[in-house]
Amino acid sequence: MNEYGRTAWRYWQTYRPQALAELPNPQAYFTDLGDQAEEMEASLWLDLQEAALAEARTEDYEERLGLSNMARMQAQEMVRTELIYLEKEAGTEHLEMLA
């Protein structure tokens, strides 16, 4: 299981315990979710990076690297929002997720 899968599992333990309890095989679910998240991140990163570099039209290596890194962070945030940090179950809003 990758980092996305582990993060989602911890999140569900804290904020989605009822949904977690209903999963027949949490290990498989979060392994698959993590793989899906990595694939989504890679695809988004490529798209965002291409768009940023095309718009910037720069040959400066450091600037291109910065744009690439920014695109990756944006892709990661999009993945977390869409796949990892789903709506919290009622009564869990006050809890804090442990690292």
Rank of each mutant, 00 (worst) to 15 (best):
Gln74Pro: 00
Ala99Lys: 14
Ile84Phe: 00
Thr58Tyr: 06
Asp32Arg: 09
Asp35Thr: 14
Glu93Ser: 13
Met1Trp: 07
Glu96Val: 15
Asp60Asn: 11
Gln13Phe: 00
Pro24Asp: 07
Gln18Thr: 09
Asp60Lys: 07
Glu39Lys: 11
Gln36Met: 13
Met97Gly: 01
Gln49Arg: 14
Tyr11Phe: 02
Glu77Phe: 08
Leu53Trp: 07
Trp45Phe: 15
Gln13Val: 03
Asp60Phe: 08
Asp47Val: 15
Thr31Trp: 00
Glu89Val: 05
Trp45Lys: 07
Asn2Trp: 07
Gln18Phe: 02
Ala37Asp: 01
Ala54Val: 13
Met78Ala: 15
Arg57Val: 12
Gln76Met: 12
Leu95Arg: 08
Gln74Met: 03
Glu55Arg: 10
Leu46Ile: 11
Leu65Trp: 11
Trp12Gln: 02
Glu55Ile: 01
Trp9Glu: 01
Ala54Asn: 15
Ala90Glu: 12
Arg64Phe: 02
Ala19Met: 05
Ala37Cys: 06
Met70Val: 14
Glu3Thr: 12
Leu67Val: 09
Gly34Trp: 02
Asn25Tyr: 04
Ala75Lys: 00
Gln27Thr: 12
Thr58Lys: 04
Thr14Pro: 02
Arg57Ala: 13
Leu48Gly: 04
Glu3Cys: 12
Asp32Ser: 12
Leu44Glu: 12
Glu96Lys: 14
Gln74Leu: 03
Leu44Ala: 08
Glu38Thr: 09
Tyr11Asn: 06
Arg6Gln: 10
Thr7Asp: 08
Asn25Glu: 10
Trp12Val: 01
Leu48Pro: 01
Asp60Trp: 07
Ala99Val: 14
Tyr11Leu: 03
Tyr15Asp: 02
Leu95Gly: 05
Leu86Thr: 04
Asn2Phe: 07
Ala99Pro: 11
Leu95Cys: 05
Thr58Asn: 04
Leu83Ser: 05
Met40Asp: 11
Asn25Phe: 07
Glu87Ile: 08
His94Phe: 10
Ala8Cys: 11
Gln74Arg: 03
Met70Thr: 14
Thr31Glu: 04
Trp45Asn: 10
Arg16Thr: 00
Thr31Arg: 06
Ser43Gly: 13
Arg64Ile: 02
Trp9Thr: 04
Arg72Cys: 13
Met1Glu: 10
Ala42Asn: 15
Gly91Glu: 02
Ala99Leu: 15
Met78His: 14
Met1Asn: 10
Ala21Tyr: 10
Gln74Cys: 06
Val79Arg: 00
Leu46Tyr: 12
Met40Pro: 07
Leu67Thr: 08
Ile84Arg: 01
Ala51Ser: 13
Thr92Ser: 08
Tyr4Ala: 05
Leu48Asn: 09
Thr7Phe: 04
Arg6Asp: 07
Glu3Gln: 15
Asn25Ala: 09
Leu83Tyr: 05
